[in-house]
C-alpha cells in the first residue's frame, strides 16, 4: 500500500483530486474488495427481497486504539449489532471517514485493516463510502460513520416492546469490558490493563438463537448506558417489570476493581459485544444451550425475569437478599466510549 508509508493525511486527501483517488484505489479498494464497491459509481446498486432493516451510527471513541479493538472494528460491530438486534441479517455497510489533517496514514491503514477483518467475520460487505479531511483541530484524529442494511427474515418480530411477564432475561456474557478497557487505556489505569473490550459482531450468534427459537421477544446490545439502561428500556417499552439477581450477573474482576476505584456501577458501563434477550420461559434452555456453543455467547446466563409487578422499573435482588431499583444511567459516565 504505497500511500501508507510514513506519510500523513493532507487536506488534499479529501479534496476529490488525485490524492483522494490514490487513497481510495490503493488504500480502500484492496481491503474492501467487492464488485459493488469496485465499480466506483456514485451509489452501490443491489437487489434485495423482503423486509429491510436500515441503521446508522457514528463512532468517535478516544483513544482510537484500545485493548481488544479500535475505532474501525467498533464501527463495523456497532452497526452490524444494531441490525442484528432487530433480528436482521446484515448485508451491506457504508463507511465514511472524517479525518483530521496530519493523521498518520499508517494508523489509517490499521483501522482499514480492522474494518476489513470485522466485516469479513460478520460476512458483510462495505459497498460505499466517503472520506473527508478537515483542518487540524476540527475533529479529534478520526471519526467514522457507518450505515448498514440487512434483511429481516420472515416471521421474525423482535422489539423492545415485546417482553411479557414470565419471560426470562438472558445476558450473553460478562458486562463492562468495553467501557473499562477504553477508560483504562485513556487514563493509564494499570490495574485494569488486563481488561479487553468485548467488541464483536453478534449477528451470527443472533442467527443461531433465531434458528432454535421463535420465542425471542426482545434483543438489544447494552452499549452506552450499559445493562441497566437496556433493561430499563425493555421495562418501559414493554410496560412490564424486570427483576434481576445481583449474584447471577457476571462481571470480571478487572472490571469490578476498576469500577470500585472509579465509583462506577458496572451496570452502567458500556459493552460492544454483549446482548440481552427476553425469551419465553419454555424456550430459555434451548436458546442458552445454543448461545453457549458460540464463542460470543459462551458465558451466557439467565440473570432475571420479566414480571407484571413494578411496571416500568428494574428491580435487583441484592447479594444480601434485599431489593433495590436499578436506574438508567443519568448524564455521562465515560465520555466518548464509542
Amino acid at each position: 500500500m504505497e500511500p501508507f508509508k510514513d506519510e500523513k493525511i493532507l487536506l488534499a486527501h479529501g479534496s476529490g483530486g488525485r490524492l483522494s483517488h490514490d487513497l481510495v484505489e490503493k488504500g480502500f479498494l484492496p481491503a474492501f474488495d467487492n464488485p459493488l464497491l469496485s465499480k466506483l459509481d456514485d451509489s452501490a446498486i443491489f437487489e434485495a427481497k423482503g423486509r429491510l432493516a436500515f441503521t446508522t451510527d457514528s463512532y468517535i471513541v478516544t483513544p482510537i486504539f484500545f485493548p481488544g479493538g479500535d475505532i474501525g472494528k467498533l464501527a463495523v460491530c456497532g452497526t452490524v449489532n444494531d441490525l442484528a438486534m432487530s433480528g436482521a441479517m446484515p448485508l451491506y455497510l457504508s463507511v465514511s471517514f472524517i479525518i483530521e489533517e496530519g493523521f498518520p496514514l499508517s494508523d489509517l491503514k490499521r483501522i482499514v485493516t480492522s474494518i476489513q477483518q470485522a466485516a469479513e467475520e460478520a460476512e458483510v460487505k462495505v459497498v460505499t463510502g466517503d472520506t473527508k479531511v478537515v483542518n487540524k483541530g476540527s475533529v479529534d484524529k478520526l471519526f467514522v460513520n457507518t450505515a448498514g442494511v440487512g434483511i429481516v427474515p420472515e416471521g421474525v418480530n423482535i422489539s423492545g416492546s415485546n417482553a411479557v411477564p414470565g419471560d426470562k432475561v438472558i445476558l450473553s456474557g460478562p458486562i463492562g469490558d468495553h467501557g473499562i478497557a477504553v477508560i483504562s487505556e485513556r487514563e493509564g489505569l494499570k490495574f485494569a490493563t488486563l481488561v479487553k473490550s468485548d467488541c464483536a459482531p453478534l449477528n451470527k450468534l443472533v442467527r443461531e438463537m433465531l434458528e432454535v427459537s421463535s420465542e425471542i421477544h426482545c434483543l438489544r446490545d447494552p452499549t452506552r448506558g450499559g445493562l441497566a439502561t437496556t433493561l430499563n428500556e425493555f421495562a418501559t417499552q414493554s410496560k412490564v417489570g424486570i427483576l434481576i439477581y445481583e449474584d447471577m450477573i457476571p462481571v470480571r474482576d478487572g472490571v469490578r476493581a476498576a469500577c470500585e476505584m472509579l465509583g462506577f456501577d458496572p451496570f452502567h458501563v458500556a459493552n460492544e459485544g454483549r446482548l440481552v434477550a427476553a425469551v419465553a420461559p419454555n424456550h430459555t434452555e434451548r436458546v442458552l444451550e445454543r448461545m453457549r456453543r458460540n464463542k460470543y455467547g459462551a458465558e451466557a446466563a439467565i440473570i432475571g425475569e420479566v414480571r407484571e409487578e413494578h411496571q416500568g422499573r428494574v428491580v435487583m435482588r441484592t447479594h444480601l437478599g434485599a431489593s433495590r431499583i436499578v436506574d438508567m444511567l443519568v448524564g455521562e459516565l465515560l465520555p466518548r466510549i464509542c
Binding site: 441484592t318 444480601l320 437478599g321 434485599a322 431489593s323 433495590r324
Partner: peptide
C-alpha cells in the same frame, strides 16, 4: 446502605 438495601434488613 441504599445500594445493598441494608435498611430493609
Amino acid at each position: 446502605i441504599l445500594k445493598h438495601g441494608i435498611r430493609q434488613l
